[in-house]
């Protein structure tokens, strides 16, 4: 039996359809990532998962419990880290942690082994008020507070947003340690590069899943030939030139290169001879997650 089972979930706010027929399953001790921009519906989905919001239609089981009917039991087995920093800014690090442990009828000592690796990093600041921690530290404390009652399912809403690249790497290292404890993790992020750290990923946009796959398989949804053009300098100029060509289907900046697809009326050879004539350095590449996401956004 899957640890999380979501079936045909719908949620709307007035005319806005936040969730449109979402279905998926997550196995025990899996890290399931939901990747999508702000407004995709990630937070609505998570709030429903942790029983803080009612769906319009559809069902959700967490560890065999119905999220709507059995909400009070669900809340005992779920650890939730909301997108906005929601700890008490005027309590210290230690006081926050102790508060969350007590609310769940536990204590810091009981489950200390679970948070130890994370907590030792913030312990030097345990007397500091939570409101005065840096971004990365706040996220680590919030993770400790979500874990201190040893939940079976951990729901993390954009835990790395606004966090620098170093702290993001560290944060994902921690999630993999938690997974080893048998805890199921569902996590959302707007950073596409974090897909690689998940066991499976759902790409989400406008209340729908564009697809669910293993991180290594995402590129398979990109079926066209993708060229990477690498000018000596001036990628933006090259981008504009490419877009002005009739055979250009899509061209986007990727760092100092341009990623390009040609339209169906143009043969590969036509493009190759053009690129040679213009002395443009290029190669064929496998699509990355952003290429794929942009392609799926267009067709959805």
């Amino acid at each position: 039996m899957p640890e999380i089972a979501v079936n045909n979930l719908f949620k709307s706010y007035g005319a806005i359809n936040a969730l449109r027929d979402i279905s998926f399953q997550v196995d025990k001790a899996e890290i399931f990532g939901i990747i999508g921009p702000d407004g995709a519906g990630k937070t609505s989905l998570f709030r429903i998962l942790v029983s803080l919001l009612l769906p319009d239609k559809g069902s959700i089981q967490l560890a065999g419990l119905d999220v709507v009917k059995d909400y009070s039991q669900v809340r005992k087995i779920v650890g939730y880290m909301p997108g906005r920093f929601s700890l008490y800014q005027d309590l210290s690090v230690e006081e926050n942690l102790s508060f969350f442990a007590t609310v769940f009828g536990s204590s810091i000592e009981t489950n200390y082994d679970l948070i130890k690796d994370i907590y030792v990093q913030i312990e030097p600041f345990k007397k500091r008020l939570a409101g005065r921690l840096s971004g990365g530290m706040k996220q680590k404390l919030a993770l400790c507070c979500a874990l201190i009652h040893r939940p079976e399912v951990l729901v993390l809403d954009e835990p790395t947003t606004g966090v620098d690249a170093v702290s993001r790497v560290e944060f994902w290292d921690l999630l993999h340690k938690i997974k080893k404890e048998g805890i199921t993790i569902i996590v959302s992020t707007p950073y596409m590069d974090e897909a690689a750290r998940c066991d499976r990923v759902a790409l989400m946009q406008n209340g729908e899943f564009l697809g669910i796959s293993l991180p290594g398989d995402i590129h398979k949804a990109f079926t066209k030939i993708l060229y990477e053009l690498t000018p000596e300098q001036g990628a933006y100029k090259l981008l504009k030139t490419m877009r002005s060509e009739a055979w250009c289907e899509n061209a986007w900046l990727f760092g100092q290169s341009v990623h390009l697809t040609i339209n169906g009326n143009t043969s590969e050879n036509q493009f190759l001879s053009y690129a040679k004539g213009q002395n443009i350095e290029f190669r064929k590449i496998t699509a990355g997650i952003e290429d794929t996401f942009m392609e799926l956004m267009k067709t959805s």
């Binding site: 999508g36 921009p37 702000d38 954009e158 947003t161 606004g162 707007p190 596409m192 946009q205 933006y236 981008l239 986007w252 900046l253 952003e290 996401f293 942009m294 956004m297």
Partner: peptide
């Protein structure tokens, strides 16, 4: 100051354009 946080990859690129 962090102008592109949270937006989709197309919007992020349009912003940089």
């Amino acid at each position: 100051d962090e102008p592109t946080g949270g937006v989709d990859p197309v919007t992020r690129r349009q912003f940089w354009e």
